[in-house]
Amino acid sequence: MASVLSGAMRLWDVAGTVTISASGLELTHTDAAIQDLTPLRIVPRAPHGWLVLRGPETLGVHAGVLGLLRQLREELAPHAQRGRLIIGAQSLR
């Protein structure tokens, strides 16, 4: 998960680091455009899923990495380009 999060930050051009802590992962960033520089904590949630916390505040609860990355991009890189999967009408065959 740490490598996925640090890779996502690079993809979004967010300067920062991901460190592994006792309770999960901690994301620190130095993007001056983001007002709140309090690190985000990503904590595993039983039986599966993730919590996103900033300080004592819970920002989000996610069943998987899809929703987690979506929220992290909104928190850390709200201006990063976002796409949408489109399945065309034509089959390959």
């Binding site: 990063a80 380009q81 976002r82 949408r84 999967l85």
Partner: peptide, 14 residues
């Protein structure tokens, strides 16, 4: 399905 969705969302024109 999730992988393609995620790639489309985050990788965009890259």
């Amino acid at each position: 399905s999730l992988f393609l969705q995620l790639v489309a969302e985050h990788c965009g024109a890259k």
